[in-house]
Design a protein around this nucleic acid. Structure first.
Lengths: 105, 105
DNA sequence: TTTATTAGAAACCTTTTGGTTTCATGTCAA
DNA sequence: TTGACATGAAACCAAAAGGTTTCTAATAAA
């Protein structure tokens, strides 16, 4: 599976989207993150592990806390995959069409 | 599940990413799309149905063919969800910090 | 009006996913 | 050093996902 597919899969789940929302504000340990959800801490920990595996999160051990940090650059990478297919190229192709047509005037 | 989560889930699977790649070039019927894969046509049809349900694809019946069309605007919408958390805000917050600090000079 | 083509629907199967509980480990603090 | 705290790991479970085959329904073409 491609790198972007993994990141999209990571972002395509409500709990993980909320985790992104939390970590966008500031870095947090596993316990604090889990505190925002009604599910068990191990459940949240598994989401974090998945997000780490695809590079979306980074972890640093500080004493007994495992601080998680959002890799915004990885999110941006996924965003660029989208833009590759997005409206952008429609416009570029329309421009190109115009250029080619104007050459025949 | 949020709209964007559904779209990310749709884009977070290799086969569906390839389908996006195909439909980015031109609209296609189910059979032609399935022709690009080694799996059965019903399997591909199920992927298409999922992508339609979340609004990523649009279908129009032309005779006995069901033509599928990529909704680039929906992709772009998902892209905007990403940018909301992306590098953008880091810069904005840095700017804001500078403004606040300069007011105390 | 048969026959071939194009596709959706249903039933079924296996693997993955998202959750649980329980247990083990490392770290801080009394 | 003993106990409380923060976390990971493992075993387990139900539901969802991704695939298959078979059957049915339209439409086009002979």
């Amino acid at each position: 599976m491609s790198k972007t597919a993994q990141i999209f899969k990571a972002m395509g789940e409500p709990t993980r989207q909320q985790i992104i929302g939390l970590l966008a504000r500031r870095d947090m340990g596993v316990g604090e993150i889990a505190g925002h959800f009604s599910m068990s801490r191990p459940a949240v920990a598994k989401h974090l592990a998945l997000m780490r595996r695809c590079g979306l999160l980074e972890m640093s051990v500080q004493g007994r806390e495992h601080i998680h940090h959002l890799r915004r650059d990885k999110m941006h990478e996924a965003g660029q995959w989208i833009e590759q297919f997005s409206l952008f190229w429609d416009e570029k192709l329309a421009d190109l069409k115009q250029i080619v047509e104007s050459e025949h005037e």
